[in-house]
Design a protein around this nucleic acid. Sequence first.
RNA 1: AGGGGUGUAGUUCAGUUGGUAGAACGCCUGGUUUUGAUCCAGGAAGUCGUGGGUUCGAGUCCUACCACCCCUGCCA
Length: 558
Amino acid sequence: MNNDSTPPVSHFIRNIVVRDLESGKHDKIVTRFPPEPNGHLHIGHAKSICLNFGIAAEFGGTTNLRFDDTNPLKESEDFAQAIMNDVRWLGFKWSELRHASDYFQQLYDHAVYLVRNGRAYVDSQDAEQIRTSRGTLKEPGTDSPFRDRSVEENLVLFEKMKIGKFADGEHVLRARIDMASPNINLRDPVIYRIRKVPHHRTGDSWNIYPMYDWAHGISDAIEGVTHSLCTLEFEDHRPLYDWFLENIQTACHPQQIEFARGNLDFTVMSKRKLRQLVEEGHVAGWDDPRMPTIAGLRRRGYTARAIRAFWKQAGVAKSESIIPMGVLENAIRNDMNENAPRVMAVLDPIKVVLDNYPEGESEWLQAPSHPQKPEMGERSVPLSREIWIERGDFMEDPPRKFFRLRPGGEVRLRNAFIIKCTDIRKNAAGEVVEVHCEYDPQSRSGLPGAARKIKGTIHWVSAEHGVGAEIRLYDRLFNVATPLADKDRDYREFLNPDSLHTLTSAVVEPAVAQGKPGDFYQFERVGYFCVDQESKATGLPILNRTVSLRDSWAKLNR
RNA sequence: AGGGGUGUAGUUCAGUUGGUAGAACGCCUGGUUUUGAUCCAGGAAGUCGUGGGUUCGAGUCCUACCACCCCUGCCA
């Protein structure tokens, strides 16, 4: 499935699984990943996916993908397809694809059983009445006037709800538990509501749909789930989860275990807000590379391997925490450092003329694709009399410790020759527009003359051979670490206006122009970039910056 | 008559039946280097939320507090 090499990390859920295996409570682990198909998966869901699939796989168990499709008003097949695509892309294989809607008949039958036993009743109060009679956090609720309807009447009414004799909202089916429970979830929770709308899978067959609490635990039991992992906010629901399974006829009673969601700083992670960002046009779509969605991260250049490594490193616990974005970035840097072929690209070019290089000539130099991995091969890089270098790699009047090109100074061109700055040309505004150098023909990489000690090495692209490219520089979506923390201000006020910079005058070495969408590179000394899906074989190649290289020079100057 | 949770280096987390507080990332120093990257070596860094108690000994057991999070959808 995924052969991530580091040993498993201990956490409380894994400890429970180990114990249950050792004690013989279970001899096979079964988990499930239960998304609602009402939006796209994000990095937080990936935590649950890695946990559920990872823990089962580690111990030879299985994991189902089960869509929690109990609310036809919000759900769609399009979202379901996107979710399946994302789970597969993350590197996981579900044992079986299931839907809560597959179990609608069984769920209904179990509900009838509850009614027969006097443990559920049809309530004919409206939503407002149900709400007020539920009580408050500190005061008990009061019984519905319909709470003591006879079994026979309840059976008839529930049947009529099912076959569509009533309008939406006229009745609900409620579990008959305890209106005075300190746990509000136990105050006769609604388990069925009337919704006369078609369902994306069951069509018009049903006029009533089960609520989450009713559907979820029973679906788990039907699938023989051993450990039902969910997030902290469902902790209060566990007594209800258990009550339902104890009061229906089933031999299987999965254990619900709750863990903390994974939060990242400088972003938002709720489906509602992500949807809002898309619909209001703050980003280009669910797969905008600034989005924390799986689709966004993928387009940004993140690999599934890096995402898995990230969540493994973050661990699983019950305390709420916010993980610094830098940790995620570190995960993709580690992956890219291992696997990305190196190339040269100049993002903000300034021209350098090698005055002593023969006019009209050029040569192709061999350059390794990875300095520590000769097995990754090499590519040919053309050099000619005029080249582009990064504007920031030349300074007329540099500060101390500036290792790059300066008037009269020497610098090494990566994979090529040592050059010396002999002259500069300025425009009317006094800006340097051209740098003139002499190159040392004896210093070509690989020759003995290259062995001289030179402080700085810079990247470059031949002006004659370089290919223009559009480079999209992404930064964090928000300019504050916790956009939701300020109760008085809307999180959209903290959107980072500079989260996307598009460069259209960048120049890349010819090898990059051959790249296909999804291909990735390290632009040496700059960062990791991938070819965007919009990039076409003709026209400007488009590259997304996944993440910059770590930069201790920039840090030094902060 | 509220209930359910969580507090251990800067951060994210480990810490088995009580026995000298650990890892990773980040940070700082040095080294290697034709990427100011990578890599290597070393270092700083914690009154284990607070106060009591039990014990020869408490991050771990008991107790009282404090802080923060979640819960009053016919959402999941």
